[in-house]
Design a protein around this nucleic acid. Structure first.
Lengths: 224, 224
DNA sequence: TGTACATCAGTGAACGCGCGTTCACTGATGTAC
DNA sequence: TGTACATCAGTGAACGCGCGTTCACTGATGTAC
């Protein structure tokens, strides 16, 4: 949550925003370069050329900063997916989705981990705002996959269909449980591939992850 | 690597082994209970009722202890899989494998993370011994899946097949690339489901992960 | 069986480090008159 | 346009904490004679 100060948008407010962005940029760079393994307020401040406590003008706490980075990451991933799938031929949409998802993850593995790996120590990954953001990502996924094919080959069991419908209702959506099931399956398979890839598991086998992705895309298409 | 001391197996050697096991047991318990988010030599010693430096009689360093826990975990997972798939009807073997894999992971999520999530800060996850252990897990997987079905429906592309064959050769195995591909696909899909499950992603949607697994097992079987 | 000795598990003090966070402050800067 | 004032970004010291690891040590324990 943003420190509530200087609400009227003067020059100071503009500078504020810029500094906040600088802080976030450096935080991500440090995570990316694996320097400090976990976010460190002091390390960020040091690189910004400022004392540690100074950052408390911009973020109420370390967790607060972290939460913002996570929310940003959810947003960016959703944007990347939307950009890749929008106006795509329905037949191509699934493949475009899969490739965009992987591309984002391997381009920014540290941010992908921020979203889906065990959160950094002592950090509550289940604050409402985070759950909401994750669900919003699922919406994007549902959007991208709706209409790709009228009848997915695999139908959820009655029990599962019930849970999926309930989930949609809770979110205010009227989703076809088969589509929801498909979205989850796609997400889960992509996550499996991508998370193994970014930890180097395929590289150490000498196997090209992109070829594996091609295979999974083919399998998903064949199931339609 | 074990501290090299007291090699002849007297009483002291036996006690040594017991203490080492105690240390590991407590380490795992602390990881499991999420107390200290990352392994802490001092925290373990404290619970053992001993001073911190005392543990250096048993493990040369924190990384050393961690590595042993990882190796143990690889071994236990492989054992669990072998126990579940051995002497299974080939038709049932895939399902047995999948359920055993998930069961192990959700029973000991902290150990599963030890294997597949980003390793704890500053820890080199690519030491030879670890890569070897991971590959041994793949062997178990290959064993469990060989003969489940003569002709998998999905065949790897020529390029991928080449990489898979080369991987097998390097390991001294003469694997059918189609089987190797299938093993990777199975592993990747299971990892996707299981890793999302243990981070609570399905629970927050109100969806039963076991039903999702049933679906994936069905999909894999249908592809044969 | 009894004694002398070597082994070695465990201690407590210490090192140097980094962490998140608070606090009282100073000094520059935008703003209102 | 010039001046007085309120705001607030940033500082440096400090707090209390925990970390991995080293070191010189002491005292119990197994072992060899």
């Amino acid at each position: 949550m943003v420190v509530e100060t200087n609400r009227r948008g003067g020059i100071r407010a503009r500078l504020r925003t810029e500094v906040r962005d600088d802080v976030k940029r450096i935080a991500l760079r440090q995570l990316a370069e694996g320097g400090p393994p976990t976010l460190s307020v002091n390390a960020i401040a040091k690189e910004l050329g400022v004392s540690g406590p100074a950052l408390y003008r911009y973020f109420t706490s370390r967790d607060d900063l972290l939460t913002e980075l996570v929310l940003d990451a959810y947003g960016d991933l959703a944007l990347a997916i939307e950009a890749a799938t929008r106006r795509q031929d329905p037949a191509q949409r699934l493949a475009a989705f899969a490739r965009a998802y992987r591309q984002w993850a391997i381009t920014e593995p540290h941010r992908y981990r921020l979203l889906f790996a065990q959160p950094t120590p002592g950090y509550d990954a289940h604050r409402d705002s985070l759950v909401d953001a994750a669900q919003r990502l699922m919406d994007t996924l549902l959007d991208a996959l709706t209409d790709t094919e009228a009848s997915p080959g695999q139908r959820p069991s009655a029990k599962l269909a019930g849970q999926l419908t309930a989930w949609g209702r809770k979110r205010g959506l009227d989703v076809d449980p088969a589509v929801a099931h498909r979205a989850i399956v796609v997400w889960s398979r992509l996550h499996g591939l991508v998370s193994l890839e970014i930890e180097g598991n395929f590289a150490s086998m000498g196997v090209d992850a992109e070829l594996l992705l091609d295979g999974e895309i083919a399998a998903l298409s064949a199931q339609d």
